[in-house]
Design a protein around this nucleic acid. Structure first.
Length: 104
DNA sequence: CAGGGGGCTAAGG
DNA sequence: GCCTTAGCCCCCT
C-alpha cells in the first residue's frame, strides 16, 4: 500500500529531526515526499503510542506554536521537552527561523 | 457511499 | 498580532 509507505516516510522524517531543532507539519509532509498532507501528519502523531520513540514534540504548526490548547498537560509536556533541548519559547511561541529543520 | 472532524495552511481583513 | 475563511487529504463512523 502506498499509504503504508507514506506513513513510514513520515515517521522516518520525524525521527530524523535533530534535538534542538523543530519542524512544522507541512514541512514534515513535504520532506517525507507527501506534500499537502500536513493534517495526515497530525493524525498520525495523535494516534501515537505513549511509549513511542518518535520525537513528536519537535513537530509544531506553521505559526510556531504548539498545536495543543494553552495550559493543557500535553502542551506543557511539549514545552518542557523543547526547553530541555535548548529551545527558547516566548509567549507560547517558537521562532521558526531560528530552530527550523529542513532536512539534511 | 456520505458526512463529519482532525496536533494543518495560506491568505485576507 | 488576532480572528475568519477556504482549501486540503486521510480516517472513522
Amino acid at each position: 500500500m502506498t499509504n503504508t509507505h507514506h506513513r513510514e516516510a513520515i515517521f522516518l522524517t520525524i525521527s530524523r529531526i535533530p534535538p534542538g531543532k523543530i519542524c512544522t507539519y507541512g514541512h514534515v509532509a513535504r520532506i517525507a515526499g507527501v506534500p499537502g498532507h500536513a493534517r495526515y501528519v497530525g493524525h498520525l502523531l495523535k494516534n501515537l503510542p505513549c511509549n513511542s520513540a518518535i520525537p513528536w514534540h519537535r513537530v509544531i504548526n506553521s505559526q510556531g506554536r504548539s498545536s495543543f490548547p494553552e495550559g493543557s498537560p500535553m502542551q506543557q509536556e511539549q514545552h518542557f521537552l523543547l526547553k530541555q533541548e535548548g529551545i527558547e519559547i516566548k509567549k507560547q511561541r517558537i521562532p521558526l527561523s531560528r530552530y527550523l529543520w529542513l532536512g539534511e
